[in-house]
Design a protein around this nucleic acid. Structure first.
Lengths: 197, 197
DNA sequence: CGTTGTTTTGAGACATTTCAAATTAAGTGG
DNA sequence: CCACTTAATTTGAAATGTCTCAAAACAACG
């Protein structure tokens, strides 16, 4: 199944969306990063960390043995610089999520999440699948690639709380649902306020 | 006061401990990283992120203008590689904290924190100040450089909850206090269990 | 049309926060 | 060295947000 070991291989994500999680022994998990194609999962030189990789949509990947990638990168200064920049961006994203998990209320977390997703998964109205911004996209309409439970695992909440907070934002007129996975942002300004910053 | 702008300059931390935080407009804050000398604060190439840097102990720093550092690093492949590795380690640490903030209980967070600190701030019994592992150190005794409020800002808790959980761990015999800032780990095994992983 | 998984909604339990006050520790100036 | 102020810490009691448990509605699929 999720037999992807990022210590042995790095993975080029060619199509789809994957979640990268850290696990507790009793099954609790925290998604630490969402990756959408095209992107690289794992990094040569990354320290050993217990992460789990799972697709959230159908996905297409290409595995590269780590030692091979390492030697390539060490021979290519520009490539290493780009990986370096990407690591710094990932760190910055992780820090933003730390603020969300450590200090925001459930409502603020959901609002933050929606703004984040609105920037990443703009819905392609006429396409069948979100193919990552390449198709004709509807501003303000978001295709959520995650289930309520996965959103909970991303935001440190239960799926019931996620569902209830979505309902509350809808009742307050900040968002609207066409179906459970398709949201449209009705009032971005108030959504930003609801996100707490 | 904390007039350190990591976008303009990087800062070599020569002595002491500093906290790097992200802020919400209403004053809530989340510490995203603790740095102890010797270390580098900020990074050339780091994307703009609203962070605040504050010393938690007396500290000695040396500022380096970012453009200067950037050009040095771009001319030195080995140096960039080391910064790259550090960024990946920081990312891994941030992910560990994400798991803590998103999925652990207050008790588990405090236990996790103590194990983390035990690895970093081993007390120098006979020295006056923790000078970061160079002096004669007592295994299992930790000098906490943070106030209860700061520990709360690190773990996403209030300072009252921090204080109560310390008291609970003490009552259960996992730790002992000589004073509020000096803890000794009495049962590392049970502390690990209490940390949830 | 039954099966399975996702989502919504409700009611009660519980962990953590909030508010408040007392205690201890740490300067500071007389 | 002592009184005074200020900050940090502990502890208590009540409020509250989120979780847990449970059930129903809904959607997807063979």
């Amino acid at each position: 199944m999720s037999a992807l070991n990022l210590h042995e291989s790095c993975v080029a994500l060619l199509r789809g969306v994957v979640k990268i999680s850290r696990l507790l022994t009793d099954g609790r998990q925290q998604i630490v990063s969402l990756k959408a194609a095209p992107d690289l999962l794992g990094s040569p030189f990354a320290p050993p960390g217990e992460v789990s990789v799972r697709a959230v949509t159908e996905a297409e990947i290409y595995c590269v043995p780590r030692p091979a990638l390492e030697s390539i990168v060490l021979q290519n200064r520009v490539l290493e610089h780009r990986l370096h920049l990407r690591a710094l961006e990932d760190l910055s994203e992780a820090e933003a999520l730390l603020l969300t998990l450590g200090r925001k209320t459930a409502r603020e977390r959901i609002a933050t999440f929606l703004l984040d997703m609105a920037g990443r998964f703009r819905s392609a109205e006429l396409g069948k699948r979100c193919d990552c911004g390449l198709a004709i996209s509807e501003p303000g309409v978001v295709d959520l690639p995650l289930t309520r439970a996965e959103i909970g695992d991303f935001l440190g909440l239960t799926f019931e709380t996620v569902s209830r907070q979505f309902a509350a934002l809808r009742k307050d007129g900040l968002i609207e649902f066409t179906d459970a996975r398709r949201v449209s942002v009705k009032d971005r300004t108030r959504l930003r306020v609801a996100a707490g910053c």
